[in-house]
Design a protein around this nucleic acid. Structure first.
Lengths: 196, 196
DNA sequence: TACGGTAGCGACACAGTGTGACGCTACGCC
DNA sequence: GGCGTAGCGTCACACTGTGTCGCTACCGTA
């Protein structure tokens, strides 16, 4: 009875989230999730490639949004400023579904397997940023390095935000970038690297 | 016939590396590895918790080495300089087994599952760095942020090194830190964050 | 040399994940 | 009203990872 298709997917996602929260990720089987959603195990894998992927479903949209955000940043800005602006433009969307983000964060935090997948998604975002920087004229080495570091700082802000209900993502992002700048300029020696 | 114990582990590691290289990670089964090593599947899992973990066996020693390296850095150095010195002290050890590193890098690069695990190991190193920075008096936010970013830069240098046989890790590490410094100071606006 | 303890392994048995193939049925479209 | 198809159920299956039991080669000790 293929009523909607999207309905089953929603039920599966909801069921998985509840079971992961209640009994933990490892203690939850695909059979449990499928039963709760009223479908078969096979149907689960038709909608999600993975047992983990249920929690990273909106990542696809986030990647597209980031791509567009990077595309919309004026070419006059420095690479660092461009990254910052693109990241900040994602803040409202993040803030909009904070409730879900908090729950997800708690589950992922205590499950190594899910933490692995989350790091993969961050790496994917980093690749997107690197592509954008490369298109802005940066060389391969610089584009990748800056993308990795910038994405890492962004991720740090998001994690802190997800763990603290009273915080504000956008402010934390700004703070992270500002702190990095301070740390870099605070070093009296311009290139401490050459001193070791 | 438990001749040595460590012998079986070595044979398993060698067999896995060869099979992963020849047929790819996904196409290689535990049965294949065990057969090639002359043991049972059960024995494989007695030595390695995972099918992936075979490739990340020396990571434990690397984590210990990094911990000691961070412990040996003079307290007078700035946090960034301290990280850099600790990372650089690991360079000889890395350079010593470059052959293995290159093979590993190639396998990991084309296997998402292994890339996930590698990111996990990097995260573990980041945690170690964060602990050290926290012990140096940095607040939680700064310690974690700086550790993440620094470890990311280090990882970027190592990846570039593993992919380019003619390169030198230590030089790349120095280069990465120097470039980050340049990017931060190149921004005419001290805090571009506040301008968006 | 004999003996007891133990570390390492083989041998099942089993739960759980993920994939392939086939058939059915409700839905949209002409 | 018939047709194509998307979505699902149903088997069947390969592979990963764990628990348990029993065996055997090695160790130190007397």
């Amino acid at each position: 009875m293929p009523r909607s298709g999207a309905q089953a997917r929603d039920r599966l996602e909801r069921a998985a989230l509840e079971l992961y929260t209640e009994h933990g990720y490892d203690q939850t089987t695909i059979a449990d999730i499928a039963a709760k959603a009223g479908v078969t195990q096979r149907t689960f894998f038709r909608h999600f490639t993975d047992k983990r992927e249920v929690l990273f479903n909106n990542e696809g949209r986030q990647q597209e949004a980031l791509t567009q955000a990077l595309d919309g940043v004026p070419r006059t800005l420095t690479p660092v400023a461009a990254m910052l602006q693109a990241f900040r433009s994602m803040s409202p969307s993040l803030e909009n579904n904070r409730p879900l983000a908090e729950v997800r964060h708690q589950i992922i935090a205590v499950t190594p397997a899910l933490r692995e997948r989350e790091l993969m998604k961050e790496a994917a975002l980093s690749t997107i940023v690197a592509d954008a920087l490369r298109e802005r004229g940066l060389a391969e080495w610089n584009a990748t390095l800056l993308a990795h570091v910038g994405t890492t700082a962004w991720g740090h802000a998001i994690h802190t935000w997800a763990a603290d209900p009273s915080s504000n993502v956008d402010a934390l992002i700004v703070q992270a970038f500002a702190d990095l700048q301070d740390f870099a300029t605070a070093n009296t020696t311009a290139h401490p690297a050459t001193q070791v």
